[in-house]
Computed example of a mutant assay.
Amino acid sequence: MAAIQLVRQVGTGQQLELKAMREVQIADTGVEYLSWSLRETYSRHYALVTLVPGTLLTKQMISSVRPELGPSAARVGLALKAGQFPSGLKPGYRVQVIHAPLQGGSAGRYRVLAPSALIDGVEKPVTGGSPGLISVIVDSTVSPAVAAYASSGEIALAELPASR
């Protein structure tokens, strides 16, 4: 049987890409692995869990509906400068979204706005002084605060490496 094996990591909630798949021949063991002949269809699906290279795909690992984008989720764009986010962030990683006040009476009063936001997109800075553009998926109840604080430079991200 020709099955789909992953050659790249696919984070939770991320779309499977054709370039992350390869064909492998396996024996029929009774496990319902996804067929290589349907790879185009499955390339429009999303990972329900983090999938590592070498994984043979099954239906239980993927969904045609993006799991993070339910009715209570919002996608927020952040323009962050060096020091406001850790290097090496990639789509699928989990982060804390933290309100980090700059000045005034609330300076130094840090507050976690989203304890486990999903990184949805990362664009590297064009020049040293330009911000990194990062999209996060958060609960829609906190998205207005995240957007407002981000617009004034008062958002920081902390990676949750155990959630990769």
Rank of each mutant, 00 (worst) to 15 (best):
A20N: 09
H99K: 09
G13E: 12
P125K: 13
A79Q: 02
R39A: 01
K81M: 04
A107Q: 03
K81D: 02
S135N: 14
T55M: 10
D120A: 14
L56A: 09
P71S: 15
V138A: 02
I137D: 05
M21H: 01
L160C: 04
A148K: 08
L48H: 00
S116R: 11
V31H: 00
R75C: 09
L38S: 05
R66S: 11
T127I: 06
V76P: 01
A117T: 14
V136W: 09
A158F: 03
G128V: 11
D120Y: 10
P91V: 02
A158E: 07
V10W: 07
G88W: 06
T50F: 07
A2W: 14
I119M: 07
V76L: 01
E40S: 04
V136S: 06
E23F: 00
Q5N: 05
G105K: 07
M61P: 06
S130N: 12
K90N: 06
Y110L: 06
A74S: 12
Q9T: 15
S130A: 15
S87M: 02
I4C: 08
Q103I: 12
I119P: 05
P131W: 13
P71H: 12
A147D: 09
P67K: 05
Q5S: 13
H99W: 12
Q60M: 12
S151D: 03
A27L: 09
G121E: 14
I26V: 13
G153R: 06
P71T: 15
A117Q: 09
Q9D: 13
L80K: 01
V142D: 03
A74R: 07
V65A: 07
Q60P: 00
V65R: 13
R8D: 15
P131T: 14
T29D: 07
P67M: 11
G13L: 13
Q84Y: 01
E159Q: 13
G105D: 12
R164W: 14
